[in-house]
Amino acid sequence: MMENKVGKKTGYFRNLRHRLYVYRESYILIAPYTILFAMFVIVPVVASIALSFTDFNMVNTPKFVGLENFSRLFLDDDVFLIAVKNTMIFSFVTGPVCYFAALMLAWFINELSPVFRSFLTFIFYVPSIVGNAFFIWTYMFSADRYGLVNGLLLKLGIIREPIHWLTDSTYMLSIIIIVQMWMSLGAGFLSFIAGLQSVDKSLYEAGALDGIKSRWQELWHITLPSMKPQLMFGAVMQIATSFGVGSVCSALAGFPSTNYAAHTIVLHAEDVGTLRYEMGYASAVSVVLFIIMIISKTVIGAVLKED
């Protein structure tokens, strides 16, 4: 009976009640998480999606308005379209770059002796540990001549007046992209480090016997296929951070930023939701972002062929 629980034989259990009974221990293990998940994730998410079809100002009861919020978003809200554009530029630059950088760095670091490995993992991960670390960049790019970057450029005579890095819409988005890259090696990077540690080392010896000649062949034929689950995890986390960008922008460029040059979808949702109390509309903004993210995840999942 027990060995039937896993493996192909499960298909023989036609009777659902019987299967539920066989897997009773699975349900016990999963119960605490599922209950909490339903209360604190499912309920709020479903409520937000439901609210996106309503007009809700947090005082009166929500009024059903159908797709009105969505048509207003795409037809009448220029700031939303700017936010979509910025979020897209942002995600398409930081997403792939951070993802591959994290993977390559993890792989490089994995080659080193344990002491160096721990040290460099620390150096590369520490910006992500420190929650609000991006405020440091406001010192570096501060608009007066006491800011590190302005100070340096003035001293070298490259510029004559301090540049308002974070309020000038020409520089804003680029600086935010740099800062985001700096702090978002994050979750993917560490899971790659741990994933590389879990690869069966004897596969490498077997690979060498089978004619693998260089470290790149080894990466492609042995290492990457062995860590597909981690690659998928890293990709999903990367999607969530890249498209979910918001607090970095408002912390660096102010809220709202000059000409909305650093306005993102998340910030737009916050703006209409918490400043203008249009919760129905804010929920619609989030639903749009949600859909964009799900599409990206599906595409990446297909590329990585994860089942």
Partner: peptide
């Protein structure tokens, strides 16, 4: 649900 952005929740 990992993809649902926190602010509106």
């Amino acid at each position: 649900t990992l993809m649902f952005s926190a602010p509106v929740m």
